[in-house]
Design a protein around this nucleic acid. Sequence first.
DNA 1: GTCTATACTGTGATAGAC
DNA 2: GTCTATCACAGTATAGAC
Lengths: 207, 207
Amino acid sequence: MLASPNRDRRTERREATKAEIVDAAWELCRAHGLAGLSLRDLAKKVGMQAPSLYSYFASKNDIYDAMFAQGCREFASGQPAIDELLAIGPLAGLKKLCHFFVAFCTADPVRYQLMFQRTIPGFEPSPESFAISMAGMQEMLRWFEAAGINAPGAADMYTAIGTGLTDQQISNDPGGDRWIRLVDDAMDMFFNHIQAKQQAPKGKRKR
Amino acid sequence: MLASPNRDRRTERREATKAEIVDAAWELCRAHGLAGLSLRDLAKKVGMQAPSLYSYFASKNDIYDAMFAQGCREFASGQPAIDELLAIGPLAGLKKLCHFFVAFCTADPVRYQLMFQRTIPGFEPSPESFAISMAGMQEMLRWFEAAGINAPGAADMYTAIGTGLTDQQISNDPGGDRWIRLVDDAMDMFFNHIQAKQQAPKGKRKR
DNA sequence: GTCTATACTGTGATAGAC
DNA sequence: GTCTATCACAGTATAGAC
């Protein structure tokens, strides 16, 4: 084997540099837009020449991919745990989950654009990054099932409401709370609706 | 005055060429993404050299602006008229309006991206184009009022639901109908909710 | 392994000849 | 109005110094 005492130090240093590059990329994207990222600016910000970035990332899209993966990890680690949601009941759980989602997305619109909108031509997350992104979604679906929210289309309806509130907030009131204020009301509406549906399933009178 | 019989012919021809350029731009954007538009490709498609485009449009963003305005006109002319909505009642009106919105947006995701998401760095619609874009929104608000839908936040909640269904449909099931199928159900949910709110206003018992 | 230097191709945009 | 020529900038590839 080629393992040696030096090896950890080296890869550690390499990973630290990669993280530094990704952090600088976030800053530039927040300033100039996601698609406005320039590798030359990025290199200058971390004290390199542009081509040197290629010893850390294979391409510009590879940098976007690292940013995407980091965003997914932040999302997964911040999302309320299933146990916590189960403890407070379905309606309060919906409110907590939706508040987290909207707050996470509106806190960094550029991150939202990268993670949830497919807006960079030619970029799509690598299979590895995509797998990370699905984890949070599946966590949500597990809680829905455990909480007894299982009307057909209920999960899809929930994601539509969550992204809709987020989208309107970011597009039409950036920095404000005009749609954030509606989260609780929207979850009341959603919860009443699925409860009514689950009590009187479609196509049946009360059995 | 400089008006002359030739003048109309000239401006007509000029407008026709501008329209041809805009149509070609749409085609290229649908093929390569909104941000993937190249002026050289566009010029080639209409049989010009790249710099010649600048005698018709002041900049690339000016072309985006013309596309934006065209999209807004298409939206305004396709949107169901207030009288038609009033005739069928509030719930059926909500369903018709929302179906139109979702169908319009999903029919051309690139147009949706340009009109409803702010994703091109440095582009924002000119005041003239923006005025066109507000017309459709105000039409909707007038109908809401005429139909008696006036609970606080009701219009904001409606736009959130409409964009949310649209967004999920485009992002997660392009070309399909997984969220389009939920439009009627979502409008039932929304309508029940605002009816309940308007019958028992927040903060008051039944008066 | 990490960086610099150089260069190739393509981009939006401008100047000026015709 | 439309062209050619050109500019400054982008992403990217490669060669080679250390």
